[in-house]
Design a protein around this nucleic acid. Structure first.
Length: 780
RNA sequence: GGGCGCAUAGCUCAGUGGUAGAGCGUUGCAUUCACAUUGCAAAGGUCGUAGGUUCGAUACCUACUGCGCCCACCA
């Protein structure tokens, strides 16, 4: 037989063609799979942000999910992996804002809402196209026909429906709360998006009547008329709660009221502090607790308001030295500690220093009790009184959602227990506009109804006030990006419509993502799904670790240590990249990315190539109907390899079934290299020369090769064997590509021999045939 | 301050109640024989310390030491 196999595996020659062949086969779409009646298995892809390109974390995510999906598809399940992308509201907006500013020196306000959104959408589209290409390069077997976008029409309907249902149930409300305000980007920022930066600031000890108070921010102190003390502090025993004193302050005399509250740390500073409830979280809480007055000192642009007297209109940054100067003049400064280490809140989305403000915002009430409708959750019946927090905790506690690795369950509970109402409004333009309208009719219109003061919450666009037919204005704010991604497991399946997909694939089986978004996203999906559908969004949460650089540092643009997954894929082949990413890495543990390891896995890819090369040049055909169970041993080497092959199949399948991906990879790796190649192939050489053993040895070689290719398929899918009358091709598709056309004919019962060009193996692209299932364990 | 985790080969990491594993690195051998884009082999570990449970502990429990992460946000 003519040997046309080159000695080195060249992934570039084949990967693109193989992906195209998969797409043509249609098997990524579960409706087109031969096993129409298989049990469903579904994963919804965590949608990458349309902020540019994929990074290593995405490559890892795609690899793990593709392994799970291909494994289940091979086992005969009706397998859906649904892809999509995320508009990532604030991240995308600030990215585009900074590009526009860099190139044209214009802000979004210079362009106006409409023009700016056009620019963002164009950018998002470009990012999307890049991401899709990159996903294909990674070999992701997602069903492109069901692709979704968090901001497309269907998802918009889902968002509005969810908002209205929660509003009507009293779980969404508008309220005044202190929020993280970013004066630079002119928006609120969620607690999770705040980044704390260590800084040394002077720490001022100021005389406040008989007290000395310590502060790092004298510029906020104008309105301070409450001095807070610990009730047990012996130094301040003679002052009682509620006592009023006149004190000399920045702009003259103020009447100070003594408040006793145990939140005060007696050890810190002087044990006495004055509060600024409008601009400080802790102060806000204290003021609420004692029903004190709130007064705004700083405006939305970071400038002082008239309460600051002569400093009115001065930006707080400039105001500090001026105010300190005045305090010194008045002899109110006792001392200044220059070496005080302080943490400053900043907006991690490329914004400025956070200045807390009290603002009207939309919130989701997580502790408000309501009656559960339509519950499919075990342990919670329809009509039970619950809270969103309780639902979120319950489904994990009762193991209806299992988190891998398990210890993240504890972290999840801790987070839930400390959870406060979720602020869902954002003062940015890119995203889902809040589906609320306000009546703009003024007093001149006689028909104005009392109800006109109520916000109009609607799924459809509102053009006039339903009460007075006056004009309306939509709330200018947009929703937190996690509001729409919270709906992701079911909005992608067609909700609120009762689609077949929703019935078939929800709850989904696995949600696989990085542990860094357990709170941002995973928890919010659990909230949304349990409330809106009365069921869990997924049964298993698989959390992968974060990819770090060789020095174990987080990859970030500012550090310049980003490694592009596609570069590595290009250099070593996608299979090597995929195997390297998952080999020896446990879930939930960070992975220092070493190029050496990927290179090592390329050796494995090449080893595999040469194993196939040896086997295929020594045999004439492979009977793909046979499995390892049909093999018989004539020598000790035969006996050993059959036993080990058997064990490798079991171990790999068992481990994959339990989502022990790295262990499954280890089993198959060590079998392929250290049993099959090192031992059996060596032993087979004399056996092949012996006429009595030759035929049986060929059969063992062929079946073992076919089995390992199948076992490896979920991990390294870019391999196929074609046996052609004129030679044997591994990982090579002739230009005419009859295999692809055979696959697309979707005749699983058709015998291999009937295939065009007498291709013996037709199944290495998408493994769907009976024998693939037979080599793997049936589901428990 | 609250919570979670880690400590295993020179490096980076898997793993297990009963002979300790991988990648890279190191050393030696091998080039018409499937594999130089390499292969084969070797060296290298009292599995952080001290107690406990157990017939048996690197693994389970406790304490300690040293690291790391998350949350809270101290005026």
């Amino acid at each position: 037989m003519e040997n046309v196999i080159p000695p080195h595996y060249n992934p570039k020659e084949t990967e693109g063609d193989i992906y195209r062949m998969w797409e043509e086969s249609g098997f990524f779409d579960p409706d087109k799979l031969p096993q129409k009646n298989g049990k469903p298995f579904s994963i919804i892809l965590p949608p990458p942000n349309v902020t540019g390109t994929l990074h290593m974390g995405h490559a890892l995510m795609l690899t793990i999910e593709d392994i799970m999906i291909r494994f289940e598809r091979m086992r005969g399940k009706k397998t859906l992996w649904l892809p999509g992308t995320d508009h990532a509201a604030i991240a995308t907006q600030s990215k585009v804002e900074s590009i526009i500013y860099k190139e044209e020196k214009k802000t979004r306000h210079d362009l106006g809402r409409e023009e700016f959104l056009k620019r963002v959408e164009a950018f998002a589209q470009r990012s999307h196209d890049t991401i899709v290409e990159q996903m294909k390069k990674m070999g992701a077997s997602v069903d492109w026909s069901r692709e979704a976008y968090t901001l497309d029409e269907k998802r918009n309907l889902a968002v509005r429906t969810a908002f209205k249902r929660m509003y009507d149930a009293g779980l969404i409300y508008k309220g005044k709360r202190i929020v993280n305000w970013d004066p630079k980007l002119q928006t609120t920022v969620s607690d999770d998006e705040v980044e704390w930066i260590e800084e040394k600031t002077p720490f001022y000890y100021l005389k406040y009547g008989p007290f000395t108070i310590a502060t790092a921010r004298p510029e906020t102190k104008f309105g301070d008329k409450y001095v807070v003390l610990h009730p047990d502090d012996p130094r301040y025993k003679k002052y009682s709660h509620g006592e009023k004193l006149d004190v000399e302050w920045i702009n003259g005399k103020v009447t100070a009221t003594v408040i006793k509250d145990p939140v005060i740390d007696m050890e810190f500073g002087t044990g006495a502090m004055t509060i600024t409830p409008w601009h400080d979280m802790t102060d806000f809480d204290i003021a609420k607790r004692h029903t004190l007055d709130f007064e705004q000192i700083i405006d939305e642009n970071g400038k002082l308001l008239p309460i600051a007297g002569e400093f009115t209109g001065v930006h707080i940054k400039k105001a500090r030295p001026l105010i300190v100067g005045k305090l010194k003049e008045k002899d109110l400064v006792e001392k200044i500690d220059e070496a005080y280490a302080h943490r400053i809140a900043t907006n991690s989305r490329g914004g400025g220093v956070i200045e807390p403000q009290i603002k009207e915002q939309w919130f989701v009430a997580v502790e408000k009790e309501f009656e559960m409708e339509n519950s499919k959750i075990e342990g919670i019946r329809t009509g039970d009184t619950v809270t969103l927090k309780k639902l979120m905790r319950h489904v994990v506690e009762s193991k209806q959602i299992k988190i891998i690795p398990e210890h993240f369950e504890k972290i999840y509970y801790h987070w839930i227990d400390n959870l406060r109402d979720w602020c869902i409004s954002r003062q940015i333009w890119y995203g889902h506009r809040i589906p609320v309208w306000y009546c703009t009719a003024n007093e001149k219109i006689k028909v104005r109804n009392e109800k006109c003061d109520e916000p109009i919450v609607s799924i459809e666009d509102v053009t006039e006030c339903p009460h007075c037919s006056g004009g309306v204005l939509q709330d200018p704010d947009t929703l937190d990006t996690w509001f729409s991604s919270g709906l992701w497991t079911f909005s992608t399946l067609g909700w609120p419509e009762e689609t077949n997909d929703l019935k078939t694939y929800h709850p989904t089986d696995v949600l696989e993502t990085g542990y860094d978004i357990l709170f941002f996203w995973v928890a919010r999906m659990i909230l949304m799904s349990t409330y809106l559908l009365g069921e869990v969004p997924f049964r298993t949460v698989y959390l992968h670790g974060l990819i770090r650089d060789a020095e174990k540092k987080k990859m970030s643009k500012s550090k310049g240590n980003i490694v592009d997954p596609l570069d590595l894929g290009e250099k070593y082949g996608t299979d090597a990249l995929r195997f390297g990413l998952i080999f020896g890495t446990a879930p939930g543990t960070d992975i220092p990315l070493s190029e050496d390891k990927i290179r090592g896995m390329k050796h494995f890819a090449n080893k595999l190539w040469n194993i196939a090369r040896f086997v295929l040049t020594n045999i004439d055909s492979i009977d793909f109907e046979k499995t390892y169970k049909d093999l018989s041993a004539k020598t000790d080497a035969d006996k050993n390899i059959i036993k080990k092959l058997n064990a490798a199949v079991l171990e790999t399948s068992n481990n994959l079934e339990r989502y022990n991906i790295h262990e499954a990879a280890q089993s198959i790796y060590s079998f392929v290299w250290h049993e099959f190649a090192d031992n059996y192939i060596e032993a087979s050489k004399p056996q092949l020369a012996n006429p009595e053993l030759s035929e049986n040895t060929k059969e063992i070689l062929g079946v073992t090769l076919a089995t390992i290719i199948k076992l490896l398929h979920p991990f390294v899918p870019f391999r196929r064997i074609d046996i052609h009358p004129r030679g044997i091709h591994i990982s090579h598709i002739p230009a005419s590509n009859p295999v692809a056309s055979f696959l697309s004919s979707r005749r699983p019962q058709a015998r291999a021999e009937n295939a065009p060009g007498s291709y013996v193996c037709r199944r290495n692209g998408i493994c769907h045939c009976r024998d693939f299932r037979r080599i793997l364990l049936p589901r428990r």
